[in-house]
Write a protein that binds this DNA or RNA. Structure first.
Length: 271
DNA sequence: CGCGGGCCCTGTGAGC
DNA sequence: TGCTCACAGGGCCCGC
């Protein structure tokens, strides 16, 4: 489901609701795929901990927690394609596909729900900090951005999706930023001129910031921590607009496969 | 090491 | 109406 703007929206929403709360206990479901750490490890790290802060690193939600007499630790929550993180009162029925349920001392739950089970919940050892696999798209400099693609033969779209380079960009925002920069998704990353990479750097940051302001993109059923849909899908210029007229030139938007993902672009506007 | 393809899952909607 | 099939915002793992 979610890319950087959606994860940021969820993390901020959950942070506002649960910051400072105490975790009494944790219920963990029977499926093992959604767990990146063992149930015992998750339970021992979370039980009795106070939630200091909830934030985003790449596409991962990070909960900073503190247990009495222990070093700070973190819970990492990756939403995969269909994951949600819901804050509910305990008497609200627990939805199907709830894999981890954090029970707060104040009577609320934080529920990790994920039908497809591509998401993951884990804990980071006390005293270490989760950094994510790559660089932050919102704060990377133009120089560092350009350096990521040097010598890479892969398509620029595939490079944008590579989380060990930049973390947080997914299929929607890769397509949207390439359209706004006028760059064809299939171009070899290493052969793109510096001036074009500077344009892409600016387009990517602008599109991500705009999407965050609008609460992310709601394609199908994405909702934030309050169950509210985002509105950035109304600003999509190419993603999921196959055959529809380009907003700039009027020619139909094309759909191909790049890096194993559906890729939308305008053959006239993107060189 | 870099890169492409297959695979993991369930739910939804298009098309027949 | 009801069924089948393709496809979905992600990422790991494998082989080349």
């Amino acid at each position: 489901m979610p890319e950087l703007p959606e994860v940021e929206t969820v993390a901020n929403g959950v942070n506002e609701r649960v910051r400072g709360a105490r975790i009494d206990s944790v219920t963990i479901g029977s499926h093992k795929e959604p767990l990146k750490s063992t149930p015992v490890h998750i339970e021992s790290t979370l039980t009795g901990a106070r939630i200091e802060h909830v934030r985003r690193v790449g596409k991962t939600i990070v909960m900073d927690i503190k247990q009495h007499d222990k070093k700070p630790a973190q819970v990492t929550i990756h939403l995969g394609m269909t994951g949600r993180l819901l804050v509910s009162k305990r008497d609200v029925p627990v939805p199907p596909h709830t894999h981890v349920n954090f029970h707060l001392h104040d009577g609320r739950d934080i529920r990790f729900v994920d039908p497809r089970r591509f998401g993951r919940v884990g804990v980071v050892d006390e005293g270490t900090t989760y950094e994510g696999p790559g660089k932050e798209p919102l704060t990377i400099s133009a120089d560092d951005f350009a350096a990521l693609f040097k010598g890479r033969k892969t398509a620029i779209k595939a490079a944008l999706l590579n989380q060990s380079l930049l973390h947080g960009v997914g299929n929607i925002y890769a397509d949207e930023s390439l359209f706004r920069a006028g760059i064809r998704p299939t171009r070899h990353a290493g052969r793109i001129k510096r001036a074009e990479l500077d344009t892409l750097h600016a387009s990517l940051q602008a599109v991500l910031k705009h999407a965050i302001q609008l609460g992310g993109s709601s394609v199908s059923d994405y909702v934030d921590a309050d169950g509210v849909r985002g509105f950035f899908q109304l600003e999509h210029r190419v993603y999921s607009r196959t055959g529809e007229p380009c907003k700039d030139c009027g020619k139909p938007i094309e759909k191909i496969v790049v890096g194993g993902r559906s890729t939308h672009f305008c053959k006239t506007c993107q060189k």
